[in-house]
């Protein structure tokens, strides 16, 4: 009896293997997708990347005809999820919610076993706006006053932000362009930076998104001084960007979707096409905007440019400042 059972199991599994092989063969003629697509989020549930990914996965099946599930592969400062997708079969069934935190910084800092361009960008959903905010009790109320004050008192102004993160790189690039030195106070995340500035324990906070400071700016508990996106943020339309002020610094904490390198050209074209349909779907737009997430959709080629620009800009500052010991 037992033997028969074992035989059945073996037969069943062999059949399964063949079925798998058949599915792969079909992909080559782009009979895609024929099964559930995994969207890997290399961070924990509930974070900003996760929220964006869940919105995307909720709408994507409309255009794919197959379900898309979000899988949180957190850990290792998002490198583990990144490595999982970089090493995944490039069949389009494993995609990743991409941010500079996974794709640019660990690579530049020598902490990732993959390369920045081991991924093929499918499109950008949005790009948060990095922002400098200050405690209003300080003797500067706008960025010009800050620059004048900091030049007169080198190293005296303290800024809180996460060590070797997107915001710190952006901040250092700006400080370099403006010719000022500041004192860095390391914190664990954006919220801790905001908390320290609100309590007056540090002078200014540099965070990766306007959302973290917006309500404090509206109530006068913090002053927004400078933003770092290509364009002004719709939430703070009167706040000029660094570029408008004459400092050529664009920092893009983008959120996008990407797949592993090696996907066939037909597959990439198909996925990029689906990507644009999803992000332009009114249901998706509505969800993203309601959640206060940034919505600056870009197609695969344009997203690729943002990505390269971010990589080059940050690589430059890391080398010039000697941040890699």
């Amino acid at each position: 009896m037992k033997k028969i059972l074992v035989l059945f199991v073996v037969l069943f599994m062999t059949a399964g293997l063949f079925a798998q092989g058949a599915a792969e063969a079909q992909t080559k003629t782009l009979d895609y997708p024929t099964k559930t697509i995994e969207l890997i989020v290399p961070w924990g549930a509930g974070g900003r990347t996760d929220i964006n990914a869940r919105f995307f996965a909720a709408v994507a099946p409309k255009y794919l005809g197959q379900p898309m599930v979000v899988v949180n592969k957190a850990g290792g400062g998002s490198v583990i999820g990144g490595q999982y997708v970089a090493a995944a079969k490039p069949d389009g069934y494993t995609l990743i919610a991409m941010t500079p935190g996974t794709n640019v910084f660990p690579v530049l800092l020598g902490q990732a076993p993959y390369d920045t361009f081991d991924f093929i960008p499918l499109g950008q959903i949005g790009s948060g706006t990095m922002v400098i905010a200050s405690n209003p009790k300080r003797p500067y109320q706008n960025v010009q006053e800050l620059v004048a004050y900091a030049k007169a008192n080198p190293g005296k102004v303290t800024y809180a932000c996460v060590t070797l993160s997107g915001p710190q790189m952006g901040f250092l690039r700006w400080a370099e362009a403006a010719g000022i030195t500041f004192s860095h106070v390391p914190v664990g995340n954006d919220n801790e930076a905001v908390e320290a500035a609100l309590g007056g324990h540090v002078d200014i906070a540099m965070t990766s998104s306007i959302a973290t400071i917006l309500s404090h700016v509206n109530t006068g508990a913090l002053n927004a001084l400078l933003t770092f996106n290509e364009v002004r943020d719709p939430a703070l339309p009167d706040m000029p960007t660094a570029v408008e002020n004459g400092w050529n610094v664009i920092a893009s904490p983008f959120t996008g979707i990407a797949g592993p390198k090696g996907m066939s050209d037909e597959l990439v074209t198909f996925l990029r096409d689906v990507f644009m349909k999803v992000v332009e779907d009114p249901e998706f737009v509505d969800m993203v905007k309601k959640a206060g997430e940034s919505y600056i959709p870009k197609n695969g080629e344009d997203f690729h440019k943002v990505w390269v620009n971010d990589y080059e800009g940050n690589k430059g500052i890391i080398e010039r400042m000697g941040l890699l010991k």
Binding site: A45, G46, G47, R48, D50, I51, A211, L214, S215, H216, N218, T219, A221, M287, K290, A291, G292, E293
Partner: peptide, 14 residues
């Protein structure tokens, strides 16, 4: 916090 945001509620002083 993520849940609040998803439902369009922004926690904070406002």
């Amino acid at each position: 916090l993520g849940v609040f945001l998803i439902h369009g509620i922004v926690p904070g002083p406002e």
